[in-house]
C-alpha cells in the first residue's frame, strides 16, 4: 500500500469547514472575508474569529488548514494583505497560499517559520518558474495551473524539490490564472486585486422572447433555451460568435473531474489533490470530499476506484478531464 494522496478541500464558511473535516479531508483551505483571497463572493469566507475557531476545530481533529491570501495587493495599500498573512501566522495556519511576488517576499522576511504555498493564481506552469519561487521565497508546495498534462506534471516533479498539488474536481480555469483581465475589462473589478471573477454584482439575467439571456456588465455571455441547464455567467464559459459559428469558444460549461486519473497522478509524483469550490455549499463539500476520500484510499491500496456519479454537482452537468489529456489543448 502506498501513501494516500493528501486531500485538500474547500471551505467557504465555517459550516463547510466542519463538513469537509467530517467527510475525510486531510487539509482544508479557506480565506478571510475580504479582497485578500480569490473567492471574494458576497456572504462568503471567514472573519478573524471564525478563522481562528476553524483552525482550532480542524487541528483538534488532525486536519491541516491552509489560508489563501492569493490576490495581488493593491499599490499604495498593502495593509490588508500583510495583516492577512500576519493573522494567519498568529492563528497557527499550517501554511499560507500566496500568488504575489511582493507578498511572498514580505511573508518570507516577516515570518521565516511560516510555510508558504504558491497559489495557482501565480500561474507557475514550468519547472523553472517554480524553481524561481522556491529559490527566492522557500516555497514548499506549488498548486499547479490547470493547463498541464500528466506527463508535464511528472516532469516537473522529477525536476523541482517542491511538493505539487493539482486540481481534481470543480470549476476549470481556461486562461492562465492570475493573468486574465477579461472580467476586469467588462466589469471594472480586477479578479487579481478584488478577488472575484465575473462578480455577481455585474451579473444580470433577462428573459427575451422565451429565452434566458445572461449578461456580465454590458455583454451577453449566453442565451439559453427553456430546458438548457443554466450556468453562472463566467465570462470564459460563455457562448460567442466567431468565424460565423456560435460556440463556447473558450470552454464548454463543464467541470473538471479527474477521479479516474488518481493512479496516474500518484505515479506522476503528485503530493496533494485539490477540490475547487469555496463558493459551493456544504452539501457539495460533503459529497465531493466523501467520494474522493474513498477513491484516494482505494487508489493507495491499489484497488479499483469505487464508482460514484458526481455529475449533478458539476456546472452545466458535464465533466472533462481538462488539460490532463493533451486533446484538451
Amino acid at each position: 500500500m502506498s501513501k494516500p494522496l493528501e486531500l485538500v478541500c474547500p471551505a467557504g464558511t465555517p459550516t463547510s469547514l466542519r463538513a469537509a473535516v467530517e467527510a475525510g479531508a486531510d487539509t482544508v483551505y479557506l480565506g478571510f472575508r475580504d479582497s485578500t483571497n480569490a473567492r471574494n463572493f458576497p456572504g462568503l469566507n471567514f472573519n478573524r474569529r471564525e478563522l481562528e475557531d476553524g483552525i482550532a476545530h480542524a487541528h483538534d481533529r488532525g486536519v491541516k488548514v491552509l489560508v489563501a491570501v492569493n490576490t495581488y495587493p493593491e499599490a499604495g495599500d498593502p495593509g490588508p494583505w500583510h495583516r492577512a498573512v500576519d493573522d494567519a501566522a498568529a492563528f497557527g495556519a499550517d501554511a499560507v497560499i500566496l500568488a504575489d511576488i511582493g507578498l511572498a517576499d514580505y511573508a518570507r522576511r516577516t515570518h521565516p517559520g511560516l510555510r508558504l504555498h504558491l497559489s495557482v493564481q501565480a500561474s507557475a506552469s514550468s519547472a523553472e518558474s517554480i524553481a524561481f519561487y522556491h529559490r527566492e521565497f522557500g516555497i514548499k508546495r506549488v498548486v499547479l495551473p490547470r493547463v498541464l498534462t500528466i506527463a508535464e506534471i511528472a516532469a516537473i516533479n522529477r525536476t523541482v524539490p517542491v511538493e505539487t498539488e493539482v486540481f481534481v474536481f470543480g470549476a476549470m480555469g481556461i486562461m492562465a490564472e492570475g493573468r486574465c483581465v477579461l472580467s476586469s475589462y467588462v466589469t471594472g473589478q480586477s479578479p487579481n486585486t478584488v478577488g472575484v471573477c465575473s462578480p455577481p454584482s455585474h451579473v444580470h439575467y433577462e428573459e427575451v422572447g422565451g429565452r434566458l439571456v445572461s449578461k456580465l456588465g454590458a455583454f451577453t455571455i449566453d442565451v439559453l433555451e427553456a430546458e438548457e441547464p443554466v450556468g453562472y455567467p463566467t465570462l470564459c464559459k460563455g457562448r460567442f460568435v466567431a468565424c460565423g459559428r456560435t460556440s463556447h469558444l473558450f470552454e464548454d460549461p463543464t467541470s473538471l473531474n479527474a477521479i479516474d486519473m488518481l493512479p496516474e497522478l500518484m505515479d506522476a509524483g503528485v503530493t496533494a489533490l485539490k477540490i475547487e469550490g469555496r463558493q459551493r455549499g456544504r452539501a457539495y463539500v460533503s459529497r465531493v470530499v466523501g467520494v474522493f476520500r474513498r477513491a484516494v484510499d482505494a487508489a493507495a491500496r491499489g484497488e479499483a476506484l469505487p464508482p460514484d456519479d458526481l455529475r449533478a454537482l458539476t456546472e452545466g452537468q458535464s465533466e472533462t478531464a481538462g488539460a490532463y489529456r493533451r486533446t484538451w489543448h
Partner: peptide, 18 residues
C-alpha cells in the same frame, strides 16, 4: 486580456492546436 494553453483560433476552425 488573457493567455491560455488552448488555441482558440484553432478551436474556432474545428482544429486542434497540434
Amino acid at each position: 486580456l488573457a493567455i491560455s494553453v488552448r488555441c482558440f483560433h484553432a478551436r474556432a476552425h474545428g482544429l486542434h492546436k497540434d
